[in-house]
């Protein structure tokens, strides 16, 4: 049985695919009503004014529509993918910095992502999210401050209490499985 939170993540993927395949405005509206207010909140906590955060959140959601064909549910959850778009938008608009992307990985023939790999990755991301939520408040706040842009690299380096080892290892395992299956 697939648990309810993972079902929700799979539903986001279905909505994104409906946007990609049919320019489905209702599906996009569902994604918009869930993610746009969260992107806006994230940007405001990262220091944007409400006006700029609103503008950027609209841009992020427009990119979600325009780049829906690039999403791959076996490699990322929709929440991860939208975060990376929001982060890049914040860099462009607020920080005026350039952030080069790595080379594309030659994953082998680009078949449609398999349902098994997609389910595994979505479940692992859900588990990661729950592990983050269950962290002691102080540790969770440290991670939030890093992602909201309040900590420099040197400040992150000086923090010894980052509790990352246990919460993230499963996503790596899911990706390793996928990579070995592809190579």
């Amino acid at each position: 049985m697939t648990d309810a939170p993972t079902v929700k993540r799979l539903a986001w993927i279905s909505q994104l695919n409906a946007v990609r395949d049919h320019q489905d405005r209702a599906a996009f509206g569902d994604l918009f009503s869930y993610f746009a207010p969260r992107v806006k909140s994230f940007l405001m906590k990262s220091g944007s004014s409400p006006e700029l955060a609103e503008e950027c959140a609209q841009d992020v959601m427009a990119t979600v529509w325009n780049k829906a064909h690039l999403f791959d549910g076996s490699k990322a959850s929709v929440s991860t993918w939208i975060f990376t778009i929001a982060r890049n938008r914040r860099i462009d608009m607020v920080r005026k910095l350039h952030r080069p992307e790595p080379e594309d990985l030659p994953w082998g023939p680009q078949d449609a992502p398999s349902a098994v790999d997609t389910l595994a990755l979505q479940q692992e991301t859900e588990i990661l999210g729950q592990a983050l939520a269950a962290l002691p408040k102080k540790q969770r706040q440290l991670i939030e401050r890093a992602y909201f842009g309040e900590l420099t690299h040197a400040e992150i380096a000086s923090e010894t209490g980052l509790p990352l080892g246990t919460i993230k290892s499963r996503i790596r395992l899911a990706l390793d499985r996928l990579r070995h299956a592809m190579n």
Partner: peptide
């Protein structure tokens, strides 16, 4: 692979960062 993990942490942190209503015509 490690970068994908850190992006995923960012995604879940964003989901956990609350929500702020968009404008009516957003």
């Amino acid at each position: 692979a490690a970068q994908a993990e850190f992006d995923a942490i960012g995604g879940e942190t964003m989901l956990d960062a609350g929500s702020v209503a968009m404008s009516d015509d957003a």
